[in-house]
Design a protein around this nucleic acid. Structure first.
Lengths: 206, 206
DNA sequence: GATAAGATACTGACTGGTCGGTATGTGAAC
DNA sequence: GTTCACATACCGACCAGTCAGTATCTTATC
C-alpha cells in the first residue's frame, strides 16, 4: 500500500538531476574524450555524488548512448529549423548552412563531441548505426527540398539528387572539420555565402 | 673504449623492431582507440616485451606522435602521387581522388585512425597543429594545379582558388566520413567519376 | 496536526582490477 | 668484460562500479 499518488515533485527533481548530470557529462566528454572522462569528474561538476550517477545511468556506456541520442535529435532540430518549402531553394540552403555552422561556432563542445562520436563509431556498431541514421535524416530533408525545387522547374533535371545531397553534407562536415583543425585558416562564417552561391550556380537550369 | 665500429647490423635490427612495434601500434590504436589501446597488447602483437617498447619510445604519448607523423607523410605521398602538371586539370583531380579513396578502401585502419587523430586534436594542440599543417600541404598541391590550369586558360578566372581547395578537400573528407559511417549507402568507388565531372563543370571556362 | 511507516533520492567510503611506467636481469655480439 | 637489445617481475596510481547508510519527502492513522 502507501501508494505514491503525487510523485510529480519527485519526478521534477529526478529530471533536474539527470539533466544536470548530462550537461556536466557533455562538458567533460567534450573536454577529455570518453575514456579519460571520469565519472568522478562528471558528478563533481554536476554537484552530486557518484551514487547519484548510478541511480540515473546504468554505466558510463549507458550515459554515452543517452548523450549521443540527445545530441543527434538536437542536431536534427537545428537542421530542420528554418526550412520553408515555399521559399526558393537557395534561401533554404542558406538558412540550413548558417544554422548548422552557427551551432558549431556558438557551442565549443560541438566539434570535439562529434569527433568523439565518430571515433567511437569505428569500434561500436550501435554508435555507427545511430550516426548513419542521422545522416539518413539529413539527406531526407535535403531530398525533399531538391525534389520540390526540381518539380517547380527551378533546377536542372539531369542531376542525381542522391549524389547532390551526399556531396553537400560531405562538404558541410568537411568544412566543420577543417575549421576545427585550422580555425585561423577556415572561417565558417565566411563560407555560408560562397557555398550557397556555388550550389545555386551548380543546380540552376541552363 | 671497445668502440663499436660496425653497428650497421644493430641499427638494422633496431629499425626492424621499431617498425614492427609501429605496425602493431597502428593496428591496436585503430582497433581500440588511444586510451583503450594498451602497451601490453601492442608489444604482444609485435612479438616483443614491454621492455623493448620503452627502448624505442619514451611513452605512449611519444608513440602516438611518431605514428601521427608517419601516417601524415604517408598520406601526403599518396596525395602527391600521380599528379602530373603536364596533364589537364580533370585528369589530375581524378588521379588524386582515386588515389586517396583507394587508400582508404584498401586500408581498413585508415578511417578509424584519422578519426582518432581528429578527436585528439580537440584536446592536444600539438596534434591539432600537425593536422593543420597536413591540410595546408594538401591545399598547396591543389593550388599549384589550379593556378597552372588557370594560367593555361583552361579554367574560369572569377573563382577564388583558396575557396575551391577548401571545398574540394572538405568534400573528400566528408565523403570518407560518410562512407565510414554508412558504407552501404555511400560507396567511395562510385564517387570518383561524378565528383571529377562536377568539378570540371564548375571550373570550366564559359 | 502529530507521528509512525515507508518510499525515494542521494551520499561517500571502499574494492577489485587494469595499466603505464620502472628496476633489474640476461644472453648475444664485439 | 663491456655494451647493446630486449625480457621479466613488479609497483603505484587511477577509476568504474558497489553498497550500506542518511536525509527528506509523501501518505496513513489516530
Amino acid at each position: 500500500m502507501a501508494a505514491v499518488l503525487n510523485d510529480a515533485p519527485r519526478r521534477r527533481r529526478r529530471e533536474e538531476t539527470r539533466t544536470r548530470l548530462m550537461e556536466a557529462a557533455i562538458r567533460v566528454f567534450a573536454g577529455a574524450g570518453f575514456e579519460r572522462a571520469t565519472v568522478d569528474e562528471i558528478v563533481r561538476q554536476a554537484g552530486f555524488s557518484k551514487g547519484a550517477f548510478y541511480v540515473h545511468f546504468e554505466s558510463k556506456d549507458d550515459l554515452f548512448r543517452a548523450m549521443l541520442e540527445e545530441r543527434i535529435s538536437h542536431q536534427l532540430e537545428a537542421f530542420r529549423q528554418g526550412v520553408d518549402q515555399t521559399l526558393p531553394l537557395t534561401d533554404n540552403v542558406r538558412t540550413i548552412l548558417s544554422g548548422v555552422f552557427g551551432l558549431v561556432r556558438n557551442d565549443p563542445q560541438w566539434a570535439p563531441l562529434f569527433l568523439e562520436f565518430g571515433a567511437h563509431a569505428a569500434r561500436n556498431d550501435g554508435v555507427r548505426q545511430q550516426l548513419a541514421t542521422m545522416y539518413e535524416r539529413w539527406r531526407e530533408i535535403l531530398t525533399d527540398i531538391l525534389i520540390r525545387s526540381r518539380e517547380a522547374g527551378r533546377m536542372r533535371k539531369d542531376l542525381d539528387i542522391t549524389f547532390i545531397t551526399m556531396v553537400l553534407i560531405a562538404a558541410v562536415e568537411g568544412c566543420i572539420l577543417q575549421s576545427h583543425v585550422a580555425p585561423e585558416t577556415v572561417r565558417l562564417d565566411k563560407m555560408v555565402e560562397p557555398l550557397t552561391l556555388t550550389l545555386a550556380e551548380w543546380l540552376a537550369p541552363e
